[in-house]
Simulated scan of single mutants.
Amino acid sequence: MPPPDTSQLLTFRCPKELEGLLPPPIPAAQGLPDWLKTMPQEVSSEIMGGQNDTVKRCPPFVDAMTSGFLIPLICDIKFENGEFTWDNDLPPCGTINFPRSPLGLHDSTQLTGTPFFESDRFVIKFHNLWTIEAPEGYSLLFTHPVNRFDLPFTTLTGWVDCDNYRDGWIHFPARWRDTNFSGVLPKGTPVAQCFPVKREKWSLRTAVFTEEETQRTHDLIGLMSRETGVYRRRFRV
Score class of each variant (00 low, 15 high):
residue 142 F to G: 02
residue 225 S to L: 11
residue 159 W to T: 04
residue 125 K to S: 08
residue 111 L to S: 14
residue 104 G to F: 04
residue 168 G to D: 04
residue 118 E to H: 06
residue 108 S to L: 01
residue 182 S to Y: 05
residue 206 T to N: 04
residue 174 A to P: 08
residue 220 L to R: 03
residue 164 N to T: 14
residue 175 R to P: 00
residue 196 P to A: 03
residue 192 A to N: 12
residue 99 P to A: 12
residue 117 F to G: 00
residue 113 G to A: 06
residue 158 G to I: 01
residue 131 T to N: 05
residue 103 L to I: 09
residue 185 L to W: 09
residue 161 D to S: 10
residue 137 G to A: 01
residue 119 S to Y: 07
residue 111 L to W: 12
residue 222 G to Q: 09
residue 209 F to K: 11
residue 169 W to F: 11
residue 145 P to T: 13
residue 119 S to H: 13
residue 160 V to Y: 06
residue 136 E to M: 15
residue 180 N to R: 13
residue 143 T to N: 14
residue 149 F to T: 04
residue 126 F to N: 12
residue 94 G to C: 02
residue 194 C to G: 02
residue 214 T to K: 05
residue 133 E to P: 02
residue 179 T to K: 15
residue 225 S to Q: 12
residue 132 I to F: 05
residue 182 S to M: 08
residue 183 G to R: 14
residue 157 T to G: 08
residue 207 A to M: 13
residue 144 H to R: 04
residue 210 T to V: 03
residue 215 Q to S: 00
residue 167 D to R: 07
residue 224 M to N: 04
residue 193 Q to A: 10
residue 148 R to Y: 13
residue 188 G to C: 11
residue 105 L to R: 10
residue 193 Q to T: 11
residue 200 E to Y: 09
residue 195 F to M: 12
residue 204 L to S: 15
residue 198 K to Y: 14
residue 193 Q to F: 10
residue 173 P to L: 15
residue 200 E to C: 08
residue 125 K to C: 09
residue 195 F to C: 10
residue 122 F to P: 02
residue 139 S to G: 06
residue 123 V to F: 07
residue 228 T to Q: 14
residue 160 V to Q: 06
residue 110 Q to G: 15
residue 152 P to Y: 01
residue 205 R to F: 11
residue 205 R to V: 09
residue 133 E to I: 01
residue 176 W to Q: 07
residue 189 T to G: 08
residue 203 S to N: 13
residue 113 G to S: 07
residue 105 L to Y: 10
residue 207 A to R: 14
residue 185 L to E: 05
residue 115 P to R: 08
residue 106 H to P: 00
residue 124 I to L: 06
residue 139 S to I: 03
residue 112 T to C: 06
residue 125 K to W: 03
residue 172 F to H: 11
residue 103 L to E: 02
residue 174 A to T: 12
residue 204 L to C: 13
residue 200 E to W: 06
residue 200 E to A: 09
residue 89 D to W: 00
residue 207 A to G: 05
residue 218 H to E: 00
residue 111 L to Y: 14
residue 140 L to M: 08
residue 161 D to R: 15
residue 198 K to E: 15
residue 200 E to P: 04
residue 175 R to C: 06
residue 165 Y to T: 09
residue 114 T to C: 03
residue 109 T to H: 01
residue 133 E to F: 01
residue 178 D to I: 07
residue 201 K to M: 14
residue 210 T to Q: 07
residue 147 N to F: 09
residue 103 L to P: 03
residue 180 N to W: 07
residue 196 P to F: 05
residue 144 H to V: 11
residue 205 R to Q: 07
residue 95 T to R: 03
residue 162 C to Y: 00
residue 120 D to W: 00
residue 157 T to K: 12
residue 109 T to P: 00
residue 93 C to A: 09
residue 166 R to W: 04
residue 212 E to A: 14
residue 127 H to N: 10
residue 146 V to I: 09
residue 113 G to Q: 06
residue 189 T to Q: 07
residue 148 R to M: 13
residue 92 P to E: 15
residue 186 P to Q: 09
residue 113 G to D: 03
residue 175 R to T: 07
residue 146 V to D: 08
residue 163 D to S: 10
residue 204 L to W: 15
residue 189 T to Y: 08
residue 145 P to A: 13
residue 161 D to K: 15
residue 173 P to R: 15
residue 188 G to S: 10
residue 125 K to T: 10
residue 113 G to V: 04
residue 202 W to Q: 11
residue 207 A to F: 14
residue 170 I to N: 11
residue 215 Q to I: 00
residue 226 R to H: 01
